[in-house]
Nucleic acid binder design. Structure first.
Length: 191
DNA sequence: AGTTCGATCGCCT
DNA sequence: GGCGATCGAACTG
């Protein structure tokens, strides 16, 4: 039951709003999908932790492009991380997807992530969820309002509390409260 | 439960 | 040439 993708106007807003509002949404790639339970906002100028901080380069150019596109990058020689571009075209800003609650294709995710022995370990980290959903650099720049990665609203509205904390694993601009998560979810990368 | 450390490589100075 | 928006295994206590 594929629901309609979120429209581009959803993404053409301040990065912090988009990061908060992406919680609870469904992300799908192929036959695998999950519910977003953890995000981080990465801003433009002034956010020294953001890839966009020092201006446009060949790697980060999609962050400066139109909203609603995937920014996928390669890190530590072995992992991909998935972001979704926010802000109007020409303004930098993106949301790192940090954790998913697996929904569809769990058996396939288990095959892709043999180290995960529990469902909550399949996608509770940015490098894990790209592995579980088979998202690679080939998806960099793709339009998540069209595909092959698609983001949509859940079938039923859910109520949850949003937790806020510092972002994980960075050293610069580390004090900013730009990490958001579904409070109480056992699928987040950390409490 | 918490800490340390190795794997592995593209990007940018 | 150094380092990074990570992960998982190995180790300690």
């Amino acid at each position: 039951m594929a629901r309609a993708p979120l429209k581009r106007t959803f993404y053409a807003r301040p990065t912090i709003e988009v990061a908060q509002d992406l919680l609870g949404k469904i992300i799908r790639h192929g036959s695998t999908s999950g519910r977003i339970v953890e995000t981080e906002a990465y801003l433009g100028i002034g956010d020294l932790a953001a890839h966009a901080a020092s201006g446009i380069t060949n790697r980060n150019r999609v962050i400066f492009g139109p909203p609603g596109h995937a920014y996928v990058y390669f890190i530590y020689g072995m992992y991909e991380c998935l972001n979704i571009v926010a802000e109007p075209e020409g303004t930098a800003g993106c949301v790192l997807i940090r954790a998913l609650e697996p929904i569809e294709g769990i058996a396939l995710m288990r095959r892709r992530r043999p180290a995960a022995h529990r469902d909550e370990d399949l996608a509770n980290g940015p490098g894990k969820l790209t592995r579980a959903l088979a998202i690679t650099l080939a998806e960099n720049g793709c339009d998540v309002t069209r595909g092959p990665i698609v983001v949509s609203a859940p079938a039923k509205r859910e109520n949850f509390e949003t937790g806020v904390s510092r972002r994980v694993g960075i050293t610069k601009s580390a004090d900013l409260p730009l990490r958001y998560f579904v409070k109480g979810s056992r699928f987040v990368s950390r409490g």
